[in-house]
C-alpha cells in the first residue's frame, strides 16, 4: 500500500496553482473589455435552449471577436449525444 502511494503521489502544489491560474486568467481575459451583458445573455440563452434540449450549462460558449472594425458575436452550443 505504502509503495503504491509512493508511485501515485499527487502533483506538486505549485503545479496545481499554475494550472488553476492558467485557466482562470484565460477566462477572465476573454471576458475583459467585453460588454457587461454577456454573462446574462449567456444565462438567458441557456434557459431558452433548455426548454427544448437538455444541455449542460457548460455546453454554451459565447465569444465576442473584434476584427476589421466590426464585432462578431459567436455562439456555440454542444448538443448532448443521443
Amino acid at each position: 500500500m505504502r509503495l503504491l502511494d509512493f508511485f501515485r503521489r499527487p502533483p506538486p502544489s505549485a503545479q496545481v496553482a499554475k494550472e488553476r491560474l492558467r485557466i482562470i486568467v484565460a477566462q477572465e481575459r476573454s471576458a475583459r473589455g467585453g460588454p457587461d451583458y454577456l454573462p446574462l445573455l449567456r444565462r438567458e440563452l441557456l434557459e431558452v435552449i433548455r426548454k427544448y434540449v437538455n444541455v449542460d450549462p457548460d455546453a454554451v460558449h459565447i465569444n465576442l471577436d473584434r476584427a476589421a472594425g466590426q464585432e462578431v458575436l459567436e455562439l456555440s452550443v454542444a448538443l448532448p449525444e443521443r
Binding site: 505549485a14 491560474l21 492558467r22
Partner: peptide
C-alpha cells in the same frame, strides 16, 4: 520542492 510557483511559471501566466 514544488511548493511555490517559479519565476518561469508566473512569467508564463
Amino acid at each position: 520542492t514544488g511548493e511555490m510557483m517559479s519565476v518561469a511559471d508566473v512569467k508564463e501566466i
